[in-house]
């Protein structure tokens, strides 16, 4: 079974952490992964930095800019991850923007991911219609789970279409915003989490955007399988370095 689905089958709330590859230092990528795994993270999203990350707020924009300045590239990321499966067994998802994949060659990109032992891909700007038409078969051949996004504005009908596309989890964006929002979860957000949970989709649900501590983690995972934390983790990594990783993960539990 794919590592993502194995994790989702556990009866616990999953902690998924997003970080930008090649940040703060170019060669930090595998060290961050190892430390996250040791600290008890359940799923890791490895961000391939992009020059124009449309769905991201200021924190991830900055980390991406720095990573690119450090010399991060698609080729470099695959090199850095070459032996990662000798070190960790945690589910690994590559998250990036579609142009990077397109320029590398979608098939080559998938092959590299499979060779490394990547379990899934999140490409926020690869529309589901194009994924289904052009790339679904390819992803499946290479054992890669495609993780689609939904938002509070996504219609019921479209959620059902999206649900039919995959068989791992759907990335539920907590509110209509770019990453790193600080809105907190009020009644509206809670009822959205519950509403989608009540739809009993084939896919599990993971909530992302705007989660930053044990409280927001508890709220966002109450009706779902867990949460994805990005901006807040990067903020910690920036301020506290590698030593900040373990206490942060522990603080969420």
């Amino acid at each position: 079974m794919n590592r993502i689905n194995k994790a989702l089958a556990q009866h616990k709330k999953l902690i998924s952490i997003y970080f930008t590859a090649g940040y703060p230092q170019l060669e930090d990528t595998s060290e961050v992964i190892k430390r996250l795994a040791e600290a008890g993270t359940d799923v890791i999203e490895i961000g391939l930095p992009y020059s124009d990350p449309l769905a991201d707020g200021p924190v991830i924009q900055k980390s991406s800019e720095q990573a690119l300045k450090n010399g991060m590239s698609t080729q470099k990321l695959f090199q850095q991850l070459k032996d990662i499966r000798k070190e960790v067994d945690i589910p690994l998802i590559v998250m990036g923007y579609f142009n990077a994949m397109l320029q590398f060659g979608v098939e080559d990109f998938c092959k590299e991911c499979e060779a490394i032992g990547i379990d899934g891909i999140i490409m926020p700007d690869l529309p589901i219609s194009i994924y289904e038409r052009d790339y679904k078969a390819l992803f499946e051949t290479h054992g890669l789970k495609f993780v689609p996004l939904i938002t509070p504005e996504t219609s019921v009908e479209r959620i059902q279409t999206i649900d039919a596309l995959g068989d791992s989890f759907v990335y539920m964006v907590s509110s209509s915003s770019t990453t790193g929002g600080e809105k907190g979860f009020g009644e509206e957000a809670m009822s959205y989490f519950k509403r989608i949970s009540d739809m009993q989709l084939t896919n599990k649900l993971m909530v992302g955007f705007g989660i930053k501590d044990a409280h927001s983690f508890e709220q966002a995972s109450r009706f779902t399988s867990g949460c994805i934390i990005g901006s807040e983790f990067i903020r910690r990594l920036t301020n506290e370095g590698m030593h900040g990783i373990e206490p942060f993960i522990k603080s969420l539990k």
Partner: peptide
């Protein structure tokens, strides 16, 4: 085409 994040779809 429209290569946009789902967030922009609506």
């Amino acid at each position: 085409g429209a290569y946009i994040p789902e967030l922009l779809y609506p």
